[in-house]
């Protein structure tokens, strides 16, 4: 299975490593033509302002929206969650998310880097905790009724799924634990 990793900016190489370990073939996506032949996509962490600007100026955004409409499975982590959300709070006025999952997120909602943290997460369906690494993470302020919450921290969802879109406010690519990538590939396989 070919899984694209949006490589405009951010931790794309770490996602590519995890996808390889989980048995997929990762492809770095920097232009619309790269996007055409992938079966699934990962949008990594990084700076959401930078990624949204580049997605527009490099012409990736429109095709991406079309492919999401057509049911492309996507895993979005941290900035990736922000890009996929319905509404961004505390963002820039010109920051328009893709609106692919019915959640509202507050940028840097947990605080600046000093407040970045690790915590053990209880994830639905996992037998042992998953180490969540939160870096200037978005805070999920609202989830729509069709969104399934797979994990929370202090009452705020940190792992959400709606249809073929999966988002985490933490970074599964930074810990050597492939379970979330495997779960995503299962979801992607099931739909292909």
């Amino acid at each position: 299975m070919k899984v694209g990793v949006l490589a405009l900016q951010g931790a794309f190489d770490r996602h590519a490593q995890e996808l390889s370990l989980a048995g997929a073939t990762p492809l770095e996506i920097r232009s619309p033509r790269h996007l055409k032949d992938v079966d699934a996509l990962v949008i990594p962490g990084g700076e959401s302002t930078t990624m949204l600007k580049l997605a527009e100026s490099l012409g990736v955004r429109d095709l991406l929206c079309d492919q999401i409409q057509d049911g492309l499975p996507i895993l979005g982590t941290c900035a990736g969650m922000i890009l996929l959300s319905r509404t961004i709070l505390d963002g820039r006025d010109d920051q328009h998310p893709l609106g692919s999952i019915d959640i509202d997120v507050r940028r840097n909602g947990y605080g600046r880097q000093l407040a970045s943290f690790e915590a053990d997460l209880q994830i639905a369906g996992f037998e042992t905790p998953f180490r969540g690494v939160f870096i200037r993470a978005p805070l999920v302020e609202r989830v729509g009724e069709n969104v399934e919450v797979l994990a929370s921290v202090e009452g705020h969802p940190v792992f959400c799924r709606q249809g073929k879109i999966m988002t985490t406010s933490f970074h599964p690519e930074l810990v050597s634990d492939g379970r979330i990538h495997e779960l995503f590939l299962e979801l992607a396989f099931a739909s292909s």
Binding site: A7, L8, Q9, G10, A11, F12, D13, R14, G45, G46, E47, C78, A79, Q113, S116, F117, E118, V133, F134, I135, R136, H171, L174
Partner: peptide
């Protein structure tokens, strides 16, 4: 967490 932010600044 500290090295993680550097990862996010890549590219």
């Amino acid at each position: 967490v500290k090295r993680g932010l550097a990862e996010m600044l890549k590219g």
